[in-house]
């Protein structure tokens, strides 16, 4: 199936739920943050970055510009539902390096970095080529840094603090 059809279907079937979550938690904070962000030259308009268990959808660490305003577990769960849906519905190649879903103003990028985990970035801006290039770069770096903390481990064995510290060191 063509990628376009796939995206349209995902948008129709699962994305509305996700949209609601994201909207509910984020929109009211966007305007103030946007102006602040624009002052920081060269900073990617990154709203959230998660490390997520591929199967259960449980967030094992995240970085967020809105910090406590977002329930990471909920967003991670919905992202995983969408991912599972698109992979099984369209037999998408799981190792495909980056998957993208657009909803309203949000662009979500997912990257299969590890055996049991994947990385997801939520961006509240149009995904320019430049943005995508930078994200690819970030995915690679974060994967390298987290490899030691995550390799061969299950969700239960992971120190969430360790993952979050690494992410905030990298993105702040």
């Amino acid at each position: 199936m063509v990628n376009q059809d796939c995206k349209a279907l995902i948008k129709k079937v699962v994305a509305p739920n996700l949209g609601l979550i994201l909207k509910h938690y984020c929109l009211s904070f966007l305007s103030s943050f946007r102006s602040k962000k624009q002052q920081i030259a060269g900073k990617l308009d990154l709203d959230h970055f998660f490390v997520i268990d591929k199967q259960s959808g449980i967030s094992i660490g995240g970085y967020s510009d809105f910090d406590k305003k977002v329930d990471q577990d909920l967003v991670a769960g919905m992202l995983t539902a969408i991912k599972s849906f698109s992979e099984s519905a369209f037999n998408q190649n799981q190792s495909q390096s980056i998957n993208t879903i657009s909803y309203s103003n949000f662009n979500i990028f997912m990257h299969n970095s590890f055996e049991h985990f994947y990385l997801a970035a939520v961006i509240n801006s149009s995904a320019s080529k430049y943005t995508q290039k930078r994200l690819k770069h970030y995915f690679k770096h974060v994967s390298t840094h987290l490899n030691k903390a995550l390799e061969g481990k299950t969700t239960e064995e992971i120190q969430k603090n360790e993952v979050e510290q690494m992410l905030s060191k990298y993105f702040k």
Binding site: V13, V14, N17, G57, D71, L74, G77, M78, A81, F85
Partner: peptide
């Protein structure tokens, strides 16, 4: 429900 809904 369409698909799945996640709550916590």
């Amino acid at each position: 429900t369409i698909g799945v809904k996640v709550d916590k």
